[in-house]
Design a binder for these strands. Structure first.
Lengths: 205, 205, 205, 205
DNA sequence: AATGAATGAGATTTCATTCAT
DNA sequence: GATGAATGAAATCTCATTCAT
């Protein structure tokens, strides 16, 4: 019994079908990523989704495309919340920065291997890095600029470096359960505050 | 007990030869690690060294053994210098800490993929991680304790976390040449100083 | 549940294709087993079949699976024939036993190395041994019990030992073309008959 | 301190030395064969003996040469005993045959993998087979002929086939501890006795 | 004679990706 | 559009055997 013709298109499968498949794929991938990390074999995702491997490749040509899609909702949330924040503008900028950074870290930490994956030099994973940078960097930049403007934090730190650093500090949370990533992030943020104008800098990059 | 060697070098490839081969192996491995990371195929190292693959396995049964050996000199230097420091004891403890941490970072940064490799959970790479922890953690711990005792830094940060954090902050230096690892490390160290006793902590690990 | 196949064969390589490949694999394996024994490299079978190595692993995860499959038809025949035997029940039990045993031997003898393979203690080959024991031991047991019940053969010999012995006697037929395996089997069967109630036994296993 | 010049030969090592090494080799090989079978890696034997691998190859160019040498004493015993037998000639020929055959089987059974090794098609193992055949076949032939001459056993069975059969029946004793090799050998020997002149023969080899 | 380091062919196994149906 | 069988490059690791010293 073929899918009823809810759509007049000549294609055998209608749009709803395709969307349903894509969603099944995303759900499966999310589950597998949690279980086995973002480097899990494609076949595992296919099995979990009940779809064929070819279908995965059709929808998401590279693995990074799939990863990006899987985490889109959360990235969206991270990308938009600071604007829609119900919290009044009275929230001090530095506080807003801290809050967001820890939310970002929470996101990375709960996705097994996601922080590592951002560094994978596999061709396709540049997309992943780019996606994150393009979506989230402006947000962090805004928060950082506001905090600096308020005099709370140093003005000479780029959002780009901070973003990579935060991501990096989240690496290894699973392998070394003892590692206190959030404390280290707090250290980094504390170092960002403007308390000691005479802090010496280390030469080099 | 069959006739033992009556002469210091009557039998087999002599020791000098073997040492020469081992050095060739280490040199080749170092070069390949720089070019292709510490996960480069064994065969590549064999080719570069001009030796057979079996020879590699004889000298270094696991990949981690080879990696450890390759970096042994530098790890040794990192492990011992703080003691023999020509610098007088008048060097403030916090300064000594900073200096060492940046040297550690320099070491990681110039070895492509070494920081990443420390996080590999592949069986053999635990050795690598352990080697680093065993050799260098005591050093960092001493520096950190001294600095805290002098009242320069917070006493509630573990050397273990700091070590992993430093290592993490070095990740991605090559993939993203723009990334200022040393600045981020400075931030972390600045955050470590005892300036704001009322710093809020983030709940969670 | 994504759109299921609405047609018996709309998707992927169709079943006929797959079956054809599997048969090609079995044929190739049979040929290679004859030429080079059941321990022949997988790659050789792949080459002979014209298929990729991965395909072999998909169809037969372990070598023993392949061996079992290759000989399944003949094992089936050996396992079932005694029941469907066109020969009337008037066939004396001992005669039936002899007939079957020689058929079993013929089977082993024509499969180069099969008897040897049954003794391999390589993990996967236990399957092979088990397959044979599970399928054929009951058959031999039935024949042996009937023969003993008829008073033709000694009742104190286990089918298990007999089966291993028969298999063993088939070893070396190819390496030593001169060796008369069937005569030796006949000797064993003759020794099984109940003629000399005073036969001395050898102590030990 | 070089070995004292007990021998005027110009060679650095005297004959006693060489003999001592050969014995160490044989002892080591025997031990390793028991532990790991006759297919144990050469290096294992070298390690056990305390000698170099090159020395093994010098003394025993092929593995079979080593195997033969290791078991030479026992083969010698099997080859000569029937003649020196203190037992009087009054011992019935068939009884002598049985006794010897079981001793032969005991020998094979206690040497792990020796019976299997006789069938190895590895080039060098032909030597092993030949050695056994050359040394022991005449003995078995004599015993068999005598027994047949006494009218105890069938005259139409060749010692060669019998010898291979005995060897074969010993295979698998270790892998299947349940297998009663000696009982099967007794069966074979019983079948050899001349009780039923009308025994049917199976056509074929 | 003795040594044992070196060699490197060979066997296994995994998965990303393609493409015939 | 969907399928999943097929592909085969890659990577690892093991020993039998040689040969420089």
């Amino acid at each position: 019994m073929p899918t009823p013709p809810t759509d007049p298109s000549p294609a055998g499968r209608n749009r709803a079908d395709v969307r349903r498949n894509e969603q099944a794929l995303l759900d499966a991938a999310a589950a597998v990523f949690v279980r086995a990390g973002v480097h899990a074999p494609v076949r595992q995702i296919a099995a979990e989704s009940g779809l064929g491997m070819g279908t995965i490749y059709r929808h998401f040509p590279t693995r990074a495309d799939l990863v990006v899609a899987v985490f889109k909702h959360q990235v969206d949330a991270l990308a938009t919340t600071p604007r829609d924040a119900t919290a009044p503008a009275t929230d001090p900028p530095y506080q807003a920065l801290r809050t967001w950074v820890h939310r970002f870290a929470d996101f990375l930490v709960t996705k097994h291997g996601l922080a590592e994956a951002m560094h994978s030099d596999q061709a396709g994973f540049e997309n992943l890095h780019n996606e994150f940078v393009e979506r989230l960097l402006p947000v962090l930049d805004r928060l950082l600029t506001a905090s600096a403007a308020a005099g709370s934090t140093r003005p000479d730190v780029r959002a780009y470096d901070l973003m990579l650093a935060i991501g990096n500090l989240c690496i290894g949370v699973e392998a070394f359960p003892d590692y206190r990533a959030h404390q280290m992030i707090d250290l980094l943020l504390a170092g960002l505050t403007r308390t000691d104008p005479a802090t010496q800098e280390h030469e080099g990059n």
